[in-house]
Design a protein around this nucleic acid. Structure first.
Lengths: 367, 367
DNA sequence: CTGAAAGCGCTTACAG
DNA sequence: CTGAAAGCGCTTACAG
């Protein structure tokens, strides 16, 4: 690092800052300022362990001085990556996914990756989209939030060379890919135990589609909690739903039609709880005065409903962050994908939390 | 195009299709199959007018045969683009934006561009994000959906070399950038005229923040429509809101506290209408039996509220598509950005539509 | 209308 | 631990 050179460089930098249309600093500029080769700059930035502490410091200083930002297109081209991960979502307009997506985006953007979001329930269909991303090397990795995709879409005899797949929230059963989930069974228990603790003995539930993994787990937890408290599972207090607001509205009509109405209802999604409560309200039934309602998810609107909804909070941002972080691991270690045992270890089950608000209360006439 | 070569190529292609980890076809492969140079393939794909019809057809056939898909990282590197546009949204979790974003994503992905979405109300702040994207060449263009950013963030003496900016929905007043908007004034008139046609003579409104462009325009249309019908603007029937559900709840309490309640209320957003109706419902007031309510936006949930909401539909997907299409134009024609007159022409005002559902009816006691 | 060739800004065996 | 050099897959003046 000769002194004169440094002075010249600084003058050049000044000029560069004034003229915006001047070129942005490249790795070569950093190398010149730091007095090393571009290869060393590249290493100092991407694999710091490979260079000496001294060199590393010089490079970092040069980066700061020049305001260098890596050109990702160049890196991706050289590394034969796309620089993008793709998220497959069942319904993009469902507010449940917003925080998950922003969690994914956060982790991905820190890693210099773009996030592309595709709706699997869009007209062009899930099959085509998956084929597009999985077979055509348009992405470095996939996060799948839709458990209703069939295993056949992913499997096939030519697994190698395909980007890794990470499931989150939902997953495809009998398909041994890692997934970031919550303990849905436990969440359902939390909901029911809360209602029992309040004194409820007549508890119904509004479920999701029967072929859905989440439905099955939550229904299991629901039954377990009742059984443990010595309460029977009353079959006609089971109401079929599909997680949507609209099905919550329909569920309310079903509840109204019952001769022996349960004093509390556990809805498997906040959206259904919302529709359920609104429709009951319309028919003159008050929550929680006449019936207690617990939701599941803790979507943004849950705290602002009338009444504010008691629900099971899913750590949505964390789910997204975790799924993205694990996917990044998988992307970095291609050999790991061949190791079935390691893959099974990889999944994470994240904690769930009961959030008590105003939609639950003691039953009016305690038994 | 020698016959033997073609046969060899086909064999090679077969092999390639079997081995997934084999390399994807590059422009060179297409050139070989079509019997032209890579330069010609590039032109045939990007600027078809520059090659003969015959050549074009040969190239297209070769593309189909090889299954060629362009490597965008390479193109972007060569063209010195980022291949991304950035969308700045005030609140990502607001469902109003979902369809706008998918409209943007549709147009952008057809043009081979990534879409990055950033929330301007996030902790890291709008200023930093704009600086990041505007000054640091991390994107080829910006779509801004937040009119509350100050002009100062965008202006400055070094406009050239910066990516173009397109506003949508909202915009920054006194800053002559093109914007894709709706005629908010007209939308408000549609709402009020509908209520008047139903027989209402006592009409209030729940507005957005007073410094918001949308609020100002809608309030103007509201007053105009009343004036035209010879109805007075009753000042204490104006209720301040901020577009959120929560403020709709508060507005309901304000309405309940009035001695002379208006028989109809025009809410400047569906979210506020939703909160307003829910809270009234809670207090035993029925919509539309006791009071008619009109919203604005037609968000997804509007049709599923109880009652289904009469509202002013914004063509959200179209807003997104149009904003993206215009931004693409701007990106292709950098010289246009210097032409103030052309820039002013560029904006679009999209049509609004009254959607009559069940939240509005004749006033109970017609005057 | 077409081709040969340079080069976008990185990374990474390879050699030392 | 470091550097010289090749090359990722495109595009685009330039020359014909």
């Amino acid at each position: 690092m000769k002194a004169e050179n440094r002075a010249e460089d600084l003058a050049a930098d000044q000029e560069r800052l004034l003229k915006v249309d001047a070129k942005l600093p490249r790795i070569r500029d950093v190398a010149r300022v730091a007095g090393v080769s571009t290869a060393t700059v590249s290493r100092a930035l991407s694999q710091p362990d490979l260079v000496s502490a001294e060199t590393r410091a010089a490079v970092l200083a040069a980066v700061a001085e020049t305001g260098y930002r890596m050109n990702l297109a160049a890196r991706n081209l050289r590394r034969k990556q796309t620089g993008s991960i793709v998220v497959l979502v069942p319904h993009l307009s469902n507010p449940f996914f917003s925080l998950i997506l922003s969690g994914i985006a956060k982790v991905a953007s820190e890693a210099g990756l773009n996030v592309l979001v595709a709706d699997t329930r869009e007209p062009d269909g899930a099959d085509r989209q998956i084929a597009e991303y999985l077979y055509n090397n348009r992405s470095d990795g996939l996060i799948v939030l839709d458990g209703n995709l069939t295993e056949a879409m992913f499997s096939g005899d030519d697994r190698k060379g395909r980007p890794p797949v990470m499931f989150a929230c939902e997953w495809v059963e009998d398909y041994d890919q890692p997934a970031v989930t919550v303990d849905n069974r436990h969440g359902a228990r939390l909901a029911v135990e809360h209602l029992i603790a309040l004194g409820h003995r007549h508890i119904g539930h509004v479920a999701g589609p029967s072929d859905n993994v989440l439905t099955r787990q939550r229904a299991g937890g629901f039954r377990d909690a009742l059984a443990e408290a010595g309460l029977p599972t009353v079959e006609h207090w089971f109401i079929q739903g599909d997680f949507t607001l609209r099905s919550g509205v329909a569920a309310a009509e079903r509840w109204l039609a019952l001769d022996d109405r349960p004093t509390a209802v556990f809805c498997f999604s906040d959206a259904m709880a919302c529709g359920f409560i609104s429709q009951l309200n319309r028919r003159g039934i008050r929550v929680p005065d006449d019936v207690s309602v617990v939701g599941f998810d803790d979507i943004d609107i849950a705290a602002h409903l009338i009444p504010p909804l008691t629900t099971i909070r899913q750590p949505r941002a964390l789910i997204g962050e975790t799924a993205a972080a694990l996917l990044l691991q998988l992307m970095r270690l291609p050999e790991m994908r061949e190791d079935a045992a390691a893959m099974k270890q990889m999944g994470k089950i994240l904690p769930l939390e009961l959030v008590v608000r105003d939609s639950t209360a003691k039953p009016r006439r305690a038994p």
